[in-house]
Amino acid sequence: MDIKQYLDSTYLKTAQQANLSEEENTQVVKNCIQEAIDNNFKLIMIRPDKVVLAKEMIQNAKSKVTIGTVIDFPEGDGALADKLAEATQAIYDGADDLDFVVDYKAFKNDEIDKVKTQVLEGTKLGLKHNKIVKWIIEVAALNNHQIVQLSALIKNVVIANCNEKEYEKVFVKSSTGFYKTPEGMPNGATVPTIKLMLENSFPLPVKAAGGVRTYEEAVEMIRLGVKRIGTSAAKTIANGEVSNSDY
């Protein structure tokens, strides 16, 4: 199976997180963008401040690689106005996919209307500009019941407010890859959590992010039904090798 068109090649570390200078970290981003172009991956997923750089490189290469970025990352607890402003800037800069971190903390606190409103407004903004919208639910911060509920909440908001042709443009996504779990527990996609998401977000598509480290694991996710896989080791996985990446 050629899995390259399922892969969102991802680099989301800040210079500080990578223990690099800003210049060094920008070079890492450039290398990742070039690798996505050279390998014809579906998408390059980078921080919002690197979208313009990615757009320029992809246009110069006449590549079909699309550009994704993260919104309110990685905590997801920013004000709605700030979420929408960041997304609007990313759209202006040339992003194709907007991966919002849903306010899963508000959800866990039973602030359901708050979560519904941000899902509605963020989705409407993205679809208005013909973008793909993904909602990161941070499965490692949730129990199974909460994964079911939050996946269904996003689905129900979209079904109630969007037309059927738009469903394929709104994903439920598993993880940021940055959530700190106790004692080395998985912080990304696992088969059980992805199954819960698939069952409860349908007909919306699902993106498995974090935790997919081999070609075989990627194929298993695709066969389960995921439409995208987020990984910082896209080339390694596509080549059938094993990644030791933490995302």
Rank of each mutant, 00 (worst) to 15 (best):
D2C: 00
Q5A: 07
L7S: 10
Y11E: 03
K13H: 12
A15V: 10
Q17M: 11
E23H: 10
E24M: 06
V29H: 05
K30L: 08
E35K: 15
D38Q: 14
F41S: 09
F41D: 07
K42S: 15
I44W: 07
D49I: 12
T69V: 07
V70S: 05
L80G: 00
D82Q: 13
K83F: 02
K83S: 03
A87Q: 01
A90M: 02
V102M: 06
D113F: 05
V115T: 03
K116D: 00
T117W: 01
V119Q: 04
E121A: 11
T123M: 10
H129A: 13
N130M: 04
K131N: 09
V133G: 01
W135Q: 12
H145F: 12
V158I: 13
V158P: 03
N161L: 02
C162W: 00
Y167P: 05
E168T: 12
K169F: 11
K173R: 10
G184F: 01
M185Y: 13
T193N: 15
I194V: 15
L198N: 04
S201T: 04
P205E: 02
V206Y: 06
A209Q: 04
G210T: 04
M221I: 12
M221Y: 11
R228L: 05
I229P: 07
I229S: 06
I229C: 08
G230P: 12
E241S: 13
N244G: 08
D246K: 15
